[in-house]
Simulated scan of single mutants.
Amino acid sequence: MYPDEFDYHEATTVEEAIDLLAGHAMEETELLAGGHSLLPAMKTGLSSPDVLIDIGEVDALHGIGVDGDTLVIGAMNRYSDLLDSEDARDHAPALTAAVERVGDRQVRNRGTIGGNLAHADPASDLPGAALASDATLIVQGPDGERTIPADEFYYGMYATDLDPAEILTRIEIPSAADAVGTYAKKPSPSSGYAMVGVAALLTVEDGTVESARLGANGAMDHGVRLEQVEEALIGKSLDEETIATAAEYATDDLETALMMDDLQASGEFRARLLAVYTERALEAAVDRAAAPAAAD
């Protein structure tokens, strides 16, 4: 199928993109990043923007680096850029683990980190990892920059705290160089998206969990923290019994009646999947925590 006609603009700076958004505020306008969600939606008629603003060549939106104890990721970095970055692997292991499970090589070579987070598809792989990583999203609009903690960014299906006049410019993640990060998901057999995905970021000292953050996607209509699981882990030995017990708390803070319910899985089934994949993410953390010791 072919999309409806639209006007196309290519921005070269963040400020130019913001001006274009303001200039077309009365029209249906979309930002074009990697295009993996937007372009199929346009071809099938699910989205018919009047204006496309391409931000792919905005230099300020690219780059990955460490600033002090913070990993800074430009919003237009592709998934493959993140996987090629030693800084990202060292400082954001949970996010890197989730990116490894995104789509296939072709998707990872075109899709962008910022596009994924801003699109807020409940079945995409990064919202849970952003929550587990304690990410902060930096957005810029006509009134300047503002910061949004990942915990406050998502609030519904395709719904975020990002204003239509704003652009997500970068993602900042506190260094987790001493932590282990994992991501476990049950992929949809039809699309590869997450029916349920769980990201975990743990600091383990002498077998005891000192800190824990877990985030999930696919279960609810937006990414969610699994705080009851975190509390059940901290101060405990990361053994089979602790993991199994903690995983059973996965749905405790969630309205199970509001869990995603579609042709692929009922809400009840997703609730069970959430516990199972929480356990698998934690089991993977045990393996990763043991790997450096084995190497030594």
Score class of each variant (00 low, 15 high):
residue 178 D to A: 11
residue 178 D to G: 09
residue 178 D to M: 10
residue 179 A to M: 14
residue 179 A to E: 15
residue 179 A to Y: 14
residue 180 V to I: 04
residue 180 V to P: 01
residue 180 V to E: 03
residue 182 T to N: 05
residue 184 A to N: 11
residue 185 K to L: 09
residue 186 K to W: 00
residue 186 K to R: 05
residue 186 K to Y: 02
residue 187 P to Y: 15
residue 187 P to C: 15
residue 188 S to M: 06
residue 189 P to N: 09
residue 190 S to A: 15
residue 190 S to N: 13
residue 191 S to E: 08
residue 191 S to Q: 08
residue 191 S to D: 06
residue 192 G to I: 04
residue 193 Y to G: 00
residue 193 Y to W: 12
residue 193 Y to L: 06
residue 193 Y to P: 01
residue 195 M to H: 05
residue 195 M to E: 06
residue 196 V to S: 05
residue 197 G to A: 06
residue 198 V to Q: 07
residue 198 V to M: 11
residue 200 A to N: 14
residue 200 A to Q: 14
residue 201 L to E: 09
residue 202 L to H: 05
residue 203 T to H: 11
residue 204 V to K: 15
residue 204 V to S: 12
residue 205 E to W: 01
residue 205 E to C: 03
residue 206 D to N: 15
residue 207 G to S: 12
residue 208 T to D: 08
residue 208 T to Q: 13
residue 208 T to M: 12
residue 210 E to H: 09
residue 210 E to A: 11
residue 210 E to Q: 14
residue 210 E to C: 08
residue 212 A to R: 03
residue 212 A to G: 13
residue 214 L to H: 03
residue 215 G to A: 08
residue 215 G to D: 04
residue 217 N to W: 01
residue 218 G to V: 01
residue 220 M to T: 02
residue 220 M to E: 02
residue 221 D to A: 09
residue 221 D to C: 06
residue 223 G to K: 06
residue 224 V to R: 00
residue 226 L to R: 03
residue 226 L to F: 01
residue 226 L to Y: 01
residue 228 Q to I: 04
residue 228 Q to D: 09
residue 229 V to M: 13
residue 230 E to S: 11
residue 232 A to E: 13
residue 232 A to D: 12
residue 233 L to M: 08
residue 233 L to D: 10
residue 234 I to W: 10
residue 234 I to A: 07
residue 234 I to C: 10
residue 235 G to E: 14
residue 236 K to W: 09
residue 237 S to K: 13
residue 237 S to Q: 12
residue 239 D to W: 10
residue 239 D to G: 07
residue 239 D to I: 09
residue 239 D to K: 03
residue 240 E to H: 10
residue 241 E to Q: 14
residue 241 E to I: 07
residue 242 T to A: 07
residue 243 I to E: 08
residue 244 A to M: 10
residue 245 T to W: 14
residue 246 A to G: 12
residue 246 A to L: 14
residue 246 A to F: 13
residue 247 A to Q: 02
residue 247 A to M: 01
residue 247 A to K: 02
residue 247 A to H: 01
residue 248 E to T: 14
residue 249 Y to P: 00
residue 249 Y to C: 07
residue 250 A to R: 13
residue 250 A to G: 08
residue 250 A to Y: 11
residue 251 T to A: 03
residue 252 D to H: 13
residue 253 D to R: 15
residue 254 L to V: 07
residue 255 E to P: 00
residue 255 E to D: 06
residue 258 L to R: 09
residue 259 M to F: 01
residue 259 M to L: 04
residue 260 M to I: 02
residue 260 M to A: 03
residue 260 M to T: 02
residue 261 D to K: 10
residue 261 D to G: 06
residue 262 D to K: 10
residue 262 D to C: 11
residue 262 D to Q: 08
residue 263 L to W: 15
residue 265 A to C: 00
residue 266 S to P: 03
residue 266 S to C: 06
residue 267 G to A: 07
residue 267 G to Q: 06
residue 270 R to Y: 04
residue 271 A to N: 11
residue 272 R to M: 08
residue 272 R to S: 07
residue 273 L to D: 00
residue 273 L to T: 00
residue 274 L to F: 07
residue 274 L to E: 02
